[in-house]
Simulated scan of single mutants.
Amino acid sequence: MTGMLDAGGMFREVAATQVLLSTTSPRIRFVEFAADEEKENGADWLWWWVDRDGTCYGLLVQAKILKLHGKRWSIDFSYKTRGDDRTQLSKLINAANHFHVPAAYVLYCGDSQYRSTLTCDRAHDDVPCRERDRVGVSAVSALVAETAVGLDVRNAGVSAFHDAVPVEDITSPDGLDAPIVPLARGLAKDLDRFLRQPQRGSRRVAKELLRPVQRIRNGQFAGAAVMEHAAPVTGALFENVPNDYGHFSVPYLAHMLRGLRAEVPDYVRDVLEGRTLPTWVTDQLGGIVVIPDADAPAVVPGRASDSGAGRRLSGLRETPRPPHGRRPGQAA
């Protein structure tokens, strides 16, 4: 992204994704498909985090760019294709039902110089929002984006950016994750433990992406959380999940946690073992990304292994551009 800006150009979703995946390969596995279902599904790729014990977490992901238009920052969550009244956001959430995973965005947000004029009056551990490390490639639930659009469509991009989590931080996080205190009471013991106790691997990914969604729900004046259970997803790690909607369009806990599985789906194993994937998968997606356990040794012939996917991603730290680099809004 920095390179394109320095050259007077602008980074694009497809190119940024290809650079990200090629740089992290072979530690991170991916398969790119020929199908282009974005118009119908609003989605690009399936991302799966896979632990050595078989626990895994999947997301249906759409890539988006944090863009500057004049003096206004935005992410086009409400994009519509010609002749279709549905927003790309609503299609993404609906398409996620096909794979029984949550819907999410991977945001390409440039480097700190690109974001220098971004206005967000909230901070992260006393660091201004726009100056956070590693946030140039971040992930956020589609439910966060949906809420931001509903509250203030013009500033939805900045709001979602604030709640986005750097991909590097959820792939190989440092420190212990703080407890999530749910609005619902009387949760199943395994779910309550998951929310309140530190997690690692794919469980940690699920928890970090759920965190801003739960924070939004806790701030909604939507009455007490509904305690009836959502329909269980086959193979889901948690079978008894509240069917509480809050002000979201779907039951938020059930939506966010249905991608957390006890066993790796067959088509994800196909990616890991180099087999041909079924057409019901390849015809629906632009590709699949598989991020193996961060503690597993990398398989890189002829050299010492990295300590994990997060270590490889750590090589993509944001670096300041030289003074002559193009700034936001500057003519190419």
Rank of each mutant, 00 (worst) to 15 (best):
L272V: 08
P278C: 00
P232E: 03
V264E: 00
D270E: 08
D293S: 11
Y245E: 06
A224G: 12
R261T: 02
A224F: 12
T279Q: 09
R269N: 03
G235A: 08
G223K: 05
G223I: 12
A296G: 10
L237S: 12
Q284H: 13
E228Y: 13
N240E: 12
R275Q: 10
F221V: 11
L257Y: 00
L285N: 04
M227F: 03
D293K: 13
I291K: 11
P265F: 05
D295H: 14
L237W: 09
I291A: 11
R269S: 10
R275P: 08
V290G: 05
R275F: 08
E273T: 15
H247Y: 12
A231Q: 10
H247F: 13
V281W: 06
P251D: 03
L272S: 01
Q284K: 15
Y245A: 04
M256L: 13
T282S: 14
E273G: 04
G223N: 01
D293Q: 08
A262C: 11
G274S: 00
N243E: 02
N243C: 04
D244A: 01
G287N: 10
D244Q: 04
V281P: 03
G274P: 09
L257W: 00
E263W: 07
D270T: 12
E263P: 10
D283C: 11
W280C: 10
P232A: 06
E263M: 14
G259Q: 11
N243V: 06
D244T: 01
G246E: 03
P265W: 00
R275C: 07
N240M: 13
A254H: 01
P278D: 02
V271C: 07
L272R: 09
R258G: 05
Y267A: 05
I288N: 00
A236N: 12
I291W: 02
E228P: 08
Y245V: 10
A222F: 00
L253F: 05
E273A: 06
E263K: 15
A222H: 05
E228W: 11
L277N: 04
V290F: 06
G259K: 14
P232T: 09
V233T: 15
A262E: 10
T276N: 12
R269E: 08
H247V: 13
G286L: 14
D283I: 13
G246F: 00
Q284W: 11
G259L: 10
R258P: 06
Y267E: 01
A236Y: 03
D270M: 09
V271G: 08
A262N: 12
V233S: 12
G219N: 09
D266W: 01
N240R: 15
V250I: 15
Q284F: 09
E239T: 15
A262P: 06
P232R: 09
L237P: 12
H229R: 14
L237Y: 13
V271T: 05
L257M: 02
P242W: 04
F248D: 02
V226Y: 07
V226S: 10
A294N: 15
V289A: 03
L260T: 14
P278V: 03
G274H: 09
M227Y: 01
M256R: 13
A294F: 06
H229Q: 14
F248K: 10
V290C: 08
R261M: 04
D293Y: 02
G274L: 09
D270K: 06
H255L: 07
